[in-house]
Design a protein around this nucleic acid. Structure first.
Length: 411
DNA sequence: TCTGGGGTCCTGATGCTT
DNA sequence: TCTGAAGCATCAGGACCC
């Protein structure tokens, strides 16, 4: 029996994570339907507590619709710092079970448990102990666990009996276990691919498994081959530890669509500041900048540019973004404005060498100087010195708030 | 019903170099 | 010198995931 467990991979997925944390921190919310998401405006539900789900509300649903379907639900704005804190606790528990933990998001991770049998027992015992350890460390949060021989099957298994589930799929029965499930459990098959598969008459994973690999590839490209492999429970991807992000972005859906270049520039400036600050906090710099606009009719437009040298200075990222703005031909109006940094290098900002260079002295820009303070004295210095002060002074300096009132400030 | 914000990866078009 | 093909990088868009 032990032989078939050549590999033991665990997928652990916290149940309704954000909503569960809100209920944990505020006893009044326990046992009641909770929606985590923006209270007003044009947002969507991030997480719905299990009490709300019978009313057919779930994540990614427009908040307006969710409130109509579940009027008794309590809407709670998200607190990402808190979720990050709890996530760290949970990940620490995972690392007590395995040195190889691959975090997928705040609430989800793979654990490589191959060969851990004589420490923790068989897969069922591993699952029970992991769930208990998470519950104890977090004072009551539940996690759903799936265990199999590949990442893919472990992932599908963890979602099989949510919430508080434990599903074990022995590798030699994985193909049969997957077969009756709908194609929507194929990782990477969203609405478009599912529609294509339906056209081919494929409804279950078993249908995909028995369809020709070559035909699937000619119909769906590279992904077709991939789905065929998954349907046969073949997934050679290893559990990999910390991965470094390839891009970093900040974007914002505006409360009211905007058309004027001055307004768009204002939000690009804000986003550039956020991106630059986060780069500096991580001690990283980027030599690519991308601007993203979403039109009122939901078309997404992007323009990008490679910089001559890596930077984490707000002004440099903003100047690049402002230049890109001129390349958009669409007059708007736009509902979303975003800035992303890509080609990220770890290590110091090249800009630090000119910390006191004449250029920054001449420009006299507050933000420019603050960037160089961070570069000179270490990431986060300015933030520690007072984010609020920086914000206030910057806004006054730019004098933009008086020109462009932000409707969201009045909410 | 009216659609977030953070990401990743894939694809087709295009342009550069050899 | 001109031309075409191959190989590669970059760009914009799209699909997908949590």
């Amino acid at each position: 029996v032990a032989d078939q467990w050549l590999h033991t991979i665990v997928h652990a997925d916290m149940d309704a994570f954000y909503a569960a944390i809100e209920q944990l921190d505020n006893p009044e919310l326990r046992g009641r339907p909770v929606l985590v998401g923006p209270k007003s405006g044009r947002g969507v539900v991030l997480t719905a507590s299990y009490e709300a789900r019978p009313a057919r509300v779930g994540s990614a649903m427009p908040m307006a619709l969710a409130r109509r379907r579940c009027p008794e639900a309590i809407v709670v704005p998200p607190r990402f710092e808190r979720y990050t804190e709890v996530s760290k606790q949970v990940m620490r528990v995972f690392r007590d079970f395995s040195p190889d933990v691959e975090a997928i998001s705040l609430d989800e991770a793979f654990l490589e448990m191959t060969g851990a049998g004589h420490i923790f027992g068989d897969p069922a015992a591993i699952g029970r102990k992991l769930k208990e350890a998470v519950r104890e460390a977090t004072h009551g949060l539940t996690v759903s666990v799936g265990i199999s021989g590949t990442k893919y099957v472990a992932k599908v298994a963890s979602g099989y009996a949510k919430p508080d589930g434990l599903t074990i799929v022995p590798p030699d029965s994985a193909v049969a276990w997957l077969a009756p499930q709908p194609v929507s459990v194929l990782w990477g098959a969203g609405p478009k691919v599912q529609a294509r598969l339906a056209e081919l008459g494929l409804e279950t994973v078993g249908d995909v498994a028995s369809y020709g690999a070559r035909e699937l590839e000619s119909a769906l490209g590279k992904m077709g081959r991939h789905f065929h492999e998954l349907a046969h429970a073949r997934d050679p991807r290893p559990v990999v530890g910390s991965r470094t992000a390839k891009s970093l972005s900040s974007e914002r859906t505006l409360t009211v669509d905007v058309s004027s270049m001055a307004q768009v520039q204002f939000y690009v400036r804000q986003a550039a500041n956020v991106v630059a600050r986060r780069l500096r906090q991580k001690g990283e710099a980027a030599c690519g900048v991308r601007v993203k606009l979403k039109t009122s009719d939901f078309r997404i437009l992007t323009r990008q540019r490679v910089l001559k040298r890596a930077t984490s200075a707000s002004d440099e990222i903003y100047e690049a973004a402002k230049g890109l703005l001129a390349e958009f031909r669409d007059p708007g109006p736009f509902r979303l404005v975003g800035v992303a940094a890509f080609n990220i290098h770890s290590g110091q900002d090249d800009g630090q060498i000119d910390f006191l260079a004449p250029q920054s002295a001449k420009s006299g820009r507050l933000d420019d100087v603050l960037d160089r303070v961070d570069a000179r004295f270490g990431p986060g210095t300015v933030q520690r010195a007072g984010e609020l002060l920086k914000r206030t002074v910057f806004d006054e300096h730019m004098n933009l708030d008086s020109l462009i009132p932000d409707p969201s400030d009045q909410e």
